[in-house]
Simulated scan of single mutants.
Amino acid sequence: MSEYQYYEFIAVDRPLTDTQQRELRALSTRARITPSSFVNEYQWGDLKGDPRAWMERYFDAFLYLANWGTHRIALRLPLGVLDAETAADYCVGESACSWVTSTHVILDLRAEDEDGDEWWDEQDRLASIVPVRAELAAGDNRLLYLAWLLCVQGRELDDEEPEPPVPAGLGDLSGPLRALGDFLRLDPDLLAAAAETSPPLNAKAPSASVLSRWVKQLPEADKDAALVRLLRGEAVQARAELLRRFQGPAPQPTSGGRTAGDLLTAAEARWAERQRVAREEQAAERKRQERAAAAAREKRLDELAGRQAQAWQRVATMIETKKPKEYDAAIVLLTDLRALAERDGDIATFDRQVWQLRQQHVRKPSLIDRLDRAALT
Results as ranks from 00 to 15, higher is better:
residue 2 S to W: 10
residue 2 S to M: 10
residue 18 D to G: 14
residue 19 T to V: 10
residue 21 Q to W: 10
residue 25 R to T: 09
residue 27 L to H: 15
residue 28 S to N: 12
residue 28 S to L: 06
residue 31 A to R: 12
residue 33 I to E: 13
residue 33 I to Y: 10
residue 34 T to C: 12
residue 35 P to L: 09
residue 40 N to T: 08
residue 43 Q to V: 11
residue 44 W to A: 15
residue 45 G to S: 08
residue 52 R to A: 06
residue 55 M to G: 05
residue 58 Y to H: 05
residue 63 L to F: 05
residue 66 A to N: 13
residue 67 N to Q: 08
residue 80 G to N: 05
residue 91 C to W: 02
residue 98 S to K: 07
residue 107 L to C: 07
residue 107 L to V: 01
residue 109 L to A: 02
residue 112 E to I: 10
residue 124 D to H: 04
residue 133 R to L: 05
residue 134 A to D: 13
residue 137 A to I: 09
residue 139 G to R: 01
residue 154 G to M: 00
residue 159 D to Y: 06
residue 181 G to L: 03
residue 190 L to C: 04
residue 192 A to T: 05
residue 203 A to L: 08
residue 221 A to G: 08
residue 225 A to P: 06
residue 229 R to Y: 07
residue 237 Q to A: 12
residue 237 Q to P: 00
residue 241 E to S: 03
residue 245 R to C: 09
residue 246 F to S: 03
residue 248 G to M: 01
residue 248 G to R: 03
residue 260 A to D: 07
residue 266 A to N: 02
residue 269 A to Q: 08
residue 272 A to E: 11
residue 274 R to I: 04
residue 283 A to T: 08
residue 284 A to W: 08
residue 286 R to C: 01
residue 288 R to E: 13
residue 296 A to K: 13
residue 302 D to T: 13
residue 307 R to F: 14
residue 307 R to S: 12
residue 308 Q to L: 11
residue 314 R to F: 00
residue 320 E to C: 09
residue 320 E to H: 14
residue 322 K to S: 14
residue 329 A to K: 15
residue 345 G to F: 11
residue 345 G to L: 11
residue 346 D to C: 14
residue 346 D to V: 15
residue 355 W to H: 15
residue 357 L to T: 02
residue 365 P to L: 05
residue 368 I to G: 03
residue 369 D to F: 11
residue 371 L to A: 04
residue 375 A to S: 13
residue 377 T to D: 12
